[in-house]
Design a protein around this nucleic acid. Structure first.
Lengths: 103, 103
DNA sequence: TTATAATGTTTATTATAATAAACAAATTGT
DNA sequence: ACAATTTGTTTATTATAATAAACATTATAA
């Protein structure tokens, strides 16, 4: 099999790192220990540690469970939602196709 | 080892499913085929298929790569960012502690 | 200052994610 | 209608994520 390793640019890693830091700050504001959040999210403390670092290799569902515990369960819908560029590109077409056009 | 299976509530799965659907719509608005996006994101088409379904078990880094290709690379920072509840809880304390309080 | 709890961090183990490949089904464009 | 392409979907393989457990370090609060 070919390598599955996820390779991100430094600036991408920085964005994810900031994301993880936001999660950690939200936990501290709530005065919850890592152990408490890990237990409520049904994950190990080691995995929460990776989450709070913004590790790219942690599953989205794990992130979601943590976000849920902290009360951010709807925030994920803010991502890829208001598609300014997409709406511009769509201006020409009135309908949304079910598939990409043939090459 | 204990089970690692990620179990989410139906409503959580629904939220993630909506997230995946947003990603797919953004791709179609750009008139990109699944193959094109998978190639640019350096993932397989099978994995992109899971992404567009909002699968919880796909790594955050994979989602991020797809979002990057579609131009949403900063959107992740909208999550867990404006912490209304957190700021309220923090009102009493002036400082942000580095750790949760002792039990 | 000191005791203690919280966090940092690594490692071995094993369940599972990502892949390639294949084929079927559905949509598009002519 | 038809041909070509895109998407849906599954499966076997194997690299890796999540875990538990351990110990070190650091912050808290008495």
């Amino acid at each position: 099999m070919e390598s599955r390793k996820i390779t991100l640019t430094p600036s991408s890693l920085k964005v994810l790192g900031e994301f993880g830091a936001n999660i950690k700050m939200a936990r501290l504001r709530r005065k919850l220990s890592a152990e408490q959040v890990a237990e409520r999210a049904d994950i190990s403390r080691a995995t929460l540690w990776n989450v709070e670092r913004g590790s790219p290799s942690v599953a989205l569902g794990i992130y979601y469970q943590v976000l849920f515990v902290l009360g951010f369960e709807k925030d994920i819908l803010k991502v890829a939602a208001d598609d300014v560029l997409g709406r511009k590109l769509q201006d020409a077409e009135l309908t949304v196709r079910k598939r990409a056009p043939k090459k």
